[in-house]
Design a protein around this nucleic acid. Structure first.
Lengths: 198, 198
DNA sequence: TTCAAAATGACCGACCATCAGTCAATTAAG
DNA sequence: CTTAATTGACTGATGGTCGGTCATTTTGAA
């Protein structure tokens, strides 16, 4: 045998080394040669760790999402009321500090829409399912605690995809200038309807 | 002067000639040479009518959307109740006959997310604004007719982007297998909450 | 035990194919 | 003859491949 490198770790290293470059320019203007350069490896080596250019993005999203989820869990758990938890849940779509994640997510959706590849779609599905389960639990807890009416459960899916919709809409138009305000109005109204009146 | 061609019409002709090809493969696998071939013109001519490859998609969407809107208007007007109108409004996201339009829209969103260009974003914004105004009118009429509670108005934006969100979500995952059912459950529940009880 | 040959994984960058976009030359209508 | 319209060969960029090199470890004969 010869040198054995930690393939998993190196894959992460390469991906993260071009994170800034990628976030700045997006996948379209990121060349594999550039990636190789900033990662300090030869171009051929890139293809030892990634099947294609898209997979690099896939890896970056993967890494950052895991970090993000830990933070998210803490933030949500720290909230008392269900409404606050739900608002926190969608915070990623407008919170200042998550601007990088949004940029990444934008590219990720774009790639997934343009050339869906089994692995990426499956990853996206798993993420989405996990998030949705998490979201449903928040709603269910709200119902159990008597904060929300029973029917709220059926609104879960709609609410869940709404965040994504608002995100895409705001990314592809110039009109929605303040996601946070839009969401707030919506939540206030909806909670007026689904909160159990004391 | 010499030959004068109807630039606007020829632009449409070229765009439509490659519609099938584009819907089948998406923009990624569509080459400008191919477009030129099926349009029966030289490659250089394409660039007399379009600034870049993306603009061809832009034109196809534009043409088909206009056709679609006429149909949509008729369909919505034919419905009596507000709930039916709203469901009809989002029909494009699951209706069998609109499968082409969805494929186009998917590519369109993808392009807009990956390399936003002023003209396309503005077009998208205008479309979106028009649709939203239309949607708000439906809600407002519902309120005026006493079918919906006043608060429904504030839910308009949320409902509006939800359609888009569900569409994107279903395009990028494998889990949502039946958009129609998901939407129906959501609407039924929501209308249970916002409909004025007689 | 020694050490050179064999084996192997890691790495590389020249090269290839593809393709979006350009432009100088050509065509043809009036 | 003028000029709008058209064209396709050409260019530059870039994603991905592949033959080959290098460094380290294994092996087994002396």
């Amino acid at each position: 045998m010869a040198i054995i490198v930690d393939k998993v770790q190196k894959r992460k290293d390469i991906a993260l080394s071009c994170k800034e470059l990628f976030i700045k320019n997006g996948i379209k203007d990121l060349t594999v040669s550039e990636v190789a350069k900033v990662a300090g490896v030869g171009k051929g080596t890139i293809y030892e760790y990634f099947k294609n250019k898209e997979e690099i993005v896939f890896e970056i999203v993967n890494i950052l999402l895991q970090e993000h989820n830990i933070q998210k869990k803490l933030r949500i758990d720290s909230k008392e009321k269900t409404k606050e938890k739900i608002i926190e849940f969608f915070g990623v779509f407008y919170r200042e500090e998550d601007v990088e994640l949004r940029k990444l997510y934008k590219e990720f959706i774009s790639i997934n829409l343009a050339n869906p590849q089994r692995e990426m779609i499956e990853f996206q599905s798993t993420c989405s399912a996990t998030y949705f389960k998490w979201f449903e639990e928040i709603i269910q807890t709200g119902i159990n605690k008597g904060e929300l009416v029973l029917a709220s459960k059926n609104l879960a899916r709609g609410l869940f995809v709404m965040g994504e919709g608002l995100f895409v809409a705001s990314s592809t138009t110039t009109t929605i200038d303040n996601i946070k305000r839009e969401l707030d109005t919506f939540y206030d109204t909806l909670f007026e309807l689904i909160e159990v009146k004391k």
